[in-house]
Design a binder for these strands. Structure first.
Lengths: 238, 238
DNA sequence: CACCATTTCAAACGCCTGTTTGAATCATAC
DNA sequence: GTATGATTCAAACAGGCGTTTGAAATGGTG
């Protein structure tokens, strides 16, 4: 029998989690077979089903291992903000920083695997797999609720729909930031120049806050003519 | 023999392309089998290999069918800008609009399948599958080169690396814009409210230009203390 | 009509998938 | 030493995968 004291888990479990995390980033969930995972983790094929029950449960475990900590850190940062502010209104930039700065702090942690995980997480936000999507939605529910609510209160004059969209846009920018600049270099046919990851946070924050503070779009002022030219161009070519 | 009465059903090739496009959006490339594609297209299983050669070739065909037109429209819009400007410098906002406005114009075209395709394209930008990634990079090479070059010339005082990063961030925001607001509603546990897609373009453009015009980040002014608090929080919890 | 290229079709191919099984191994407790 | 539960292991399972095959059906042309 194994008493609660023997928490030092057999390391097989963790080796599998590490291997799966790295392989999922590289080849996606469906593109990564259990045989590749277990071989990479130097474990037996049946070990995944023994320790986790199924491949889907393994995917959940990979996320839960780090996502719980990340979201708790986010909530803690928001708690601290609200405690400091007292009854005063929170600055939107502080709220944004509490959410995205926390994520980038984990992404900058290359030693404990946080960087790998954040690349996986950002790539998974729009995962086609329905099971993964619902799982992520549940994991994010509380954090989203708290941060959107804080932004609603901080920007009472801005329509809530507008705030949700801008938060969505910010998530997209962060997602691509996590993925790295390599794709831009590749698509532009440029050689890849290594970047200092420490510069990513200020770069992204500056961009995010610029977008958040941008004047609200006035539908009447949209430059329609060019829009329609382009539209016709697409139809003509297609 | 098929009399005139029987509907002029689109050719098998096109039915397969349409079915594959829609299914790829929903379940990804690896999650969509040839059997599901051909059944959905009401075609024989062997039809894909007959018409396209392989599943990979089908994926390429799905993209090429619309991506070529999209990128040609983008280049045409940039050509027009440069012709109008003559020797004068281009306004960065115009360049951004030529790139992203064109994409959103296609995304707004729900009747010809442009909307479906743009959702697929935006999700595929960070595809793990190496084959798809390289194919996309090649398809994008010329457009990326032209637009980045235009931005470099329009913003000579801004470091090129900074411009590339911001362009990357903008791509991320657009990618999530294409995916729709549903995920935010789902993650926040809110009911999904249908949105007017016509409002998406001004919303996104306002955000993108706000981000593009944001002051350049000053590394020295990064709010370090909070950053480290959060960082420690993550380590402590993990 | 026959001819011929194009397209469809059912069936099979070999390989890979996630999962299960039952025995072997290990570590600990009595 | 032996009993006990946890873990590993090789082997097999049923089923799905992309692809190939060769014959049947189709449609236009001389």
């Amino acid at each position: 029998m194994c008493p609660v004291a023997c928490m030092p888990q057999p390391e097989t479990r963790d080796r599998i989690l590490d291997a799966a995390e790295a392989l999922f980033v590289e080849h996606g969930f469906e593109g990564t077979s259990m045989r590749v995972i277990t071989r990479s983790a130097q474990a037996n094929l049946a070990a995944v089903n023994y320790h986790f029950g199924s491949k889907d449960a393994l995917i959940q475990a990979v996320f839960r291992r780090r996502l719980t900590a990340l979201n708790e850190a986010r909530l803690a940062a928001l708690d601290q903000l609200e405690a400091q502010a007292g009854d005063a209104a929170l600055k939107p930039s502080r709220i944004v920083f509490a959410f995205f700065g926390t994520a980038l702090a984990m992404a900058a942690d290359t030693e404990h695997g946080g960087a790998t995980f954040m690349r996986l997480l950002s790539r998974t936000y729009n995962e086609p797999n329905a099971f993964v999507r619902q799982f992520l939605a549940e994991e994010y529910a509380e954090v989203m609720d708290r941060f959107l609510g804080a932004l609603f209160r901080a920007l009472p004059e801005v329509p809530r729909t507008e705030i949700m969209w801008r938060f969505h846009f910010m998530m997209g920018a962060m997602s691509f930031a996590m993925a790295g600049i390599e794709s831009v270099h590749a698509m532009a046919g440029l050689p890849y120049e290594d970047e200092d990851p420490a510069r990513l946070l200020p770069r992204l924050m500056s961009f995010l806050l610029g977008g958040l503070r941008a004047p609200l779009a006035d539908l009447a002022e949209t430059p329609r003519p060019m829009m329609f030219d382009v539209h016709d161009g697409i139809h003509g070519a297609g």
